[in-house]
Simulated scan of single mutants.
Amino acid sequence: MSPPRIMDFNRTVSRPLPLILKAKPLRTPSNIFVVNLAFCDFMMLTKAPLFIHSTLFVGYLEHVHCQAFAAIGAISGIGAATTNAAIAYDRYNTIARPFDGRMTYGKAFFIVICIWCYAIPWIYLPLSETWSRYVPEGFLTTCSFDYLTPTNEIRTFTGVMFVVCYCIPMSFIIYFYSQIVSHVFRHEKALREQAKKMNVDSLRSNQDANAQSAEVRIAKAAITICFLFVAAWTPYAVVALIGAFGDRSLLTPGVTMIPATFCKTVACFDPYVYAISHPKYRMELSKRIPCLGIKETPPAAAETQSTTTTTA
């Protein structure tokens, strides 16, 4: 195995964005959301050097660094949450309404603009200290919005943030992906009942089998995405609520650091859920880096648009 191939592997797997931009089959309206999510995840990863430096050498983030650290975290966290909701909406339309719900470039860009119009105020308000503020947390090596100061202003901001930046995106994600899974199961049930009436084993041709394989992948990815979002952000949301409305004596530096660190790891998993499990992305990987041994079967030429876009 030659060194250049190893370098290409590292770049492509760790950063799905360049491949999406280079490969024409991946430049779809739906993948605009994946690019936006990749940007949010990249912003989260840019905090790592500052976190490592403060942990090993400084021990305390200065005010400017603290504000930058917290603002970047807010950009990544809120932006990723709302982008995940947009992806869920797009996939729901693609699978449940393949003809009426097709995404266009104009609609995709408009939704991305709406995502940032939704997120930016909640990033700016603590940064300008108009409402709440960014302060050190845990072992004082990271920063986030203030949820420990016992004032009505902080309690109100924490409660509103919980609803706007956690409950609403999570509700959309769970609703749309549950509808996707329900649609797949209803579709399969209808096919089995029809096959039974016609006294045949299956109504599917080889082409339809490939379509079903794509639908099953999407259903599995949907469950994974919901689990990742809930598992990554729920502990941090609970800690913030305890700090604002509960017994603050329970929140030791170690207790607050664990969920604060864990919620940032979702930025490492998103590329694999959205890209590595993507059939078209896997096909491009198999073409560009054969040494990976990825075997992805190209879709049939007559395969419908609804099948090819379900994994976008």
Rank of each mutant, 00 (worst) to 15 (best):
E193R: 15
R11H: 14
Y272L: 15
R15N: 15
A23V: 06
C40Q: 08
A260P: 00
Y92F: 14
A71C: 15
A190T: 04
T46K: 01
Y134G: 03
T130N: 08
N36D: 09
Y60S: 12
D247I: 01
P16Y: 10
P126C: 07
R204W: 12
V34R: 09
L127A: 14
Y124N: 04
G159D: 13
T130L: 11
E303S: 08
I242W: 08
A237K: 02
E62H: 15
W122H: 11
I87G: 01
L125C: 01
I174L: 10
I289N: 00
K22W: 08
L45W: 13
K22S: 15
S76D: 11
T149C: 04
K22C: 15
P259A: 08
K287M: 02
C226M: 12
F33E: 02
Y274K: 12
E153T: 13
M198Y: 11
Y60Q: 14
G293Q: 10
C114L: 12
K22G: 06
T156W: 04
T310D: 12
T142G: 07
Y60C: 15
L250K: 04
C291V: 11
R192F: 03
L45I: 10
P136T: 04
V112C: 04
T94H: 00
I154V: 15
G73R: 05
A221V: 10
S286N: 03
K287G: 03
Q67A: 08
K189Q: 14
G293V: 09
L56C: 09
W116S: 05
R15L: 13
D201Q: 14
A237G: 05
S213K: 09
L50C: 09
A81K: 04
Y134S: 11
V184S: 04
A108P: 03
M198C: 07
P16A: 04
S171T: 08
S76C: 12
S178E: 04
F33K: 01
R155Q: 15
I115N: 09
L127T: 10
C165A: 13
F269E: 08
C226I: 08
S213P: 00
T224H: 05
L250F: 00
A219K: 01
K47P: 03
A119D: 12
I78Q: 13
T46Y: 01
S171Q: 00
S2Q: 14
A211L: 02
I123G: 10
K264S: 14
A38V: 01
A119L: 06
G59W: 14
A119G: 10
V112Q: 08
P298H: 08
V184G: 01
K24M: 02
T224G: 06
P98E: 00
K295E: 13
C268H: 08
M170A: 15
G79K: 03
R186F: 10
S132A: 11
L191N: 11
Y281G: 05
N36M: 05
W116V: 08
F39C: 05
Q305E: 14
Q207P: 00
F33Q: 08
V181W: 12
P98W: 02
R217T: 04
V200N: 14
